[in-house]
Nucleic acid binder design. Structure first.
Length: 274
DNA sequence: CGGCGGTCCTGTCAGC
DNA sequence: TGCTGACAGGACCGCC
């Protein structure tokens, strides 16, 4: 579900809510999500103080005072909910619950169970399998035209799946890949190694522009994703192509096309994008 | 190594 | 009203 802007929003909100709080107890209600979860992590969370919250790719990293980091990935349908005081309603698929000493509570709910949870030694985090082979952060200054151009030159796959390949570039998922390529005026079907340098420049710039704009809008809410407090993001109102097949292009008026690439839906305007 | 298809799950919605 | 199949913000694994 959530891509970089949604995870970034969750991390920013989460930081405001839980920084400095002490965990009184944690409870796991499942044996596994995407992977089996070591039940003993709940013991290591007890009495720990939250010292930092940050995003790494699409992972939420919660650093603890005991030199461990709790790492959460929301998968396709995961959601974190924070409540002052114990949340009254129990929901199906509440897999993981953290209670703080001040009586507030954080819940992880994930119907499809594609999410991931693990506890990692903070100083070993980059060696962990979650992070070992991740690509570059698209909002970093290292991600620039020449870097993208060099990634593209050596690969024949279509540019949309290259943008979504987390071993090359992290955080861009199915929604923002289509939006970025529309903004850059490049067709999602173009083989990466056929792109001109100036097209890579456009893709690089539009990646940063679209992701920043989406973070400002607190992400996109389609069905599952909500912010920590249940509020919805608003970037879905700014979609130019995603889920707009059969609707007119906002630039030229031609009908937006929908195709399937690598088993995912892609949306584009075949007049504005080349 | 690169690229692609299958797979993990549940919920929802369109179509019969 | 069921039922069935397709599809959904992700990413790993194994095969060619």
């Amino acid at each position: 579900m959530p891509e970089l802007p949604e995870v970034e929003t969750v991390c920013q909100n989460l930081s405001k809510k839980v920084l400095g709080k002490v965990i009184s107890q944690a409870k796991l209600n499942v044996d596994k999500l995407r992977f089996p979860i070591n039940k003993s992590i709940t013991r290591s969370l007890k009495e720990a103080n939250i010292v930092n919250v940050k995003r790494k790719a699409k992972y939420i990293v919660i650093e603890l005072s005991n030199d461990n980091s709790l790492v959460i990935h929301l998968g396709m349908s995961g959601r974190l909910t924070f409540g002052e005081g114990s949340l009254k309603e129990k929901h199906k698929h509440d897999h993981f619950i953290i209670n703080f000493k001040d009586e507030s509570e954080l819940r992880f709910n994930d119907p499809r169970r594609f999410g991931m949870i693990d506890l990692i030694k903070t100083n070993e985090i980059n060696d962990h399998k979650f992070f070992r082979s991740l690509g570059i952060e698209p909002l970093s200054k290292e991600f620039k035209t020449d870097y993208l151009y060099s990634l593209c030159k050596r690969r024949s796959k279509n540019i949309k799946s290259l943008l979504m390949d987390s071993s090359l570039i992290v955080g861009i998922g199915n929604i923002y890949a289509s939006e970025i390529l529309y903004e850059a005026r490049v067709l999602p079907t173009r083989p990466s190694n056929k792109l001109k340098q100036r097209e890579c420049e456009a893709i690089c710039k539009s990646s940063k522009k679209i992701l920043k704009k989406a973070i400002k809008a607190k992400g996109s809410t389609l069905r599952d994703y909500k912010q920590l407090d249940g509020e919805v993001g608003s970037f879905q109102k700014l979609f130019e192509v995603y889920a707009r097949d059969q609707e007119p292009c906002n630039i030229c008026g031609k009908t937006i096309q929908k195709i399937t690439q690598n088993a995912r839906s892609s949306y584009y305007c075949d007049k504005c994008q080349n």
